[in-house]
């Protein structure tokens, strides 16, 4: 999935294209907002839980898209941030501090710290080495969680309470939680979109394509990437917070390296670098996973080759296909 074409179009989009680019996210969020209505009209209730879960992963995939799609950094340890967010939430709830306004700052702080420290080391390298090191740091957090015997260790930690938001019990109903996650997803989406369009974002995009040019123009490429890495980690931490509240359970499996691979696939599936592509990709992935796992317990035997075929034969992901249908061919 070469990322250049997607952004080439973003940058040079003439007016009609720009409308299409706005139309798709608006349509997407509009449909999501109507989902609970569909359930009250007779869709199975489990469907809403699946969609909620999909939106949580969409937040994580969106955050990954910032560094992977926009910044061009293939991070294979992104599930670590999801896991850190979930564990901080789980531990704080267990310790009787269930208030979101208390948990979220801690989640953001710890994710930022972990991202800053590991990012500073990872970003000293590039290419294949970067992929391997992010993977290794992800694995490190996984083993750390396994060793946390006070909080369930290998077996994970069951939560007997959900977070409150400013004292309100918003997460206790399915619909309430759904809208909270939707609001968070929309907020993160707008935030990342603003970041990408900012001065910072422009340099991040430029550095993906031509880091040498960017550095002789007076920018410290490593520092810019580190900022993106930290922001991305923090947003993924938010997803972890919701995931813990969604499953009422946290376990090391949340940050297994397969999970990191799945996040990459979600991002690429939707169309890398387009942000709403990551959201579409996450939703499509979770729905496909759900459907296939109902079909057979060996769904991975079907899913694995699908990924391989997808990589070999498609480019641009789902958003790329929509763009081709709507815009009559690319650049």
């Amino acid at each position: 999935m070469s990322t250049a074409p997607a952004l080439a179009e973003t940058a040079a989009a003439p007016a009609p294209r720009r409308h299409i680019r706005l139309l798709l996210p608006i349509l997407l969020f509009g449909l999501l907002a109507l989902a609970p209505l569909a359930v009250s009209l007779g869709m199975p209730a489990g469907w809403l839980a699946l969609l909620t879960r999909a939106m949580i992963f969409a937040i994580a995939a969106l955050s990954l898209d910032l560094i992977l799609g926009v910044g061009g950094l293939v991070s294979f340890g992104h599930a670590a941030f999801l896991g850190i967010g979930a564990y901080v939430t789980g531990i704080m709830i267990t310790e009787g501090r269930a208030e979101a306004l208390l948990i979220l700052p801690v989640v953001l702080g710890i994710c930022a710290l972990f991202a800053a420290v590991t990012g500073a080391i990872c970003l000293r390298t590039r290419g294949v080495t970067f992929i391997m090191i992010t993977l290794a740091f992800g694995q490190m957090v996984y083993f750390l969680a396994q060793a946390l015997s006070a909080y369930g260790g290998d077996d994970g930690l069951t939560l007997y309470e959900k977070s409150t938001v400013a004292g309100l019990d918003l997460f206790s109903t399915r619909t309430g939680f759904f809208y909270c996650v939707l609001a968070a997803l929309a907020g993160c989406y707008v935030l990342v979109r603003i970041l990408v369009a900012s001065r910072f974002g422009r340099i991040l995009r430029a550095a993906r394509e031509n880091p040498v040019r960017v550095s002789v123009t007076g920018f410290d490429v490593t520092r810019i990437r580190l900022i993106a890495y930290v922001i991305s980690g923090m947003v993924a931490g938010i997803a972890g917070f919701f995931l813990a509240n969604h499953t009422d359970f946290v376990s090391p499996a949340f940050m297994s390296w397969q999970r990191s691979g799945e996040l990459i696939f979600m991002t690429v599936l939707g169309g890398v670098g387009s942000l709403h592509g990551a959201i579409i990709g996450a939703i499509a992935y979770l729905i496909a996973e759900d459907a296939l796992s109902h079909l057979t317990e060996h769904w991975r035997v079907i899913f694995g080759p699908m990924i391989v075929l997808f990589v070999l034969f498609t480019r641009g992901g789902i958003v790329g296909m929509i763009r081709k249908l709507g815009g009559g061919g690319g650049a």
Binding site: A197, S198, R202, I227
Partner: peptide, 9 residues
Amino acid sequence: PLSLFRNAA
């Protein structure tokens, strides 16, 4: 030079 929020375009 690295303002995070103002639109650059």
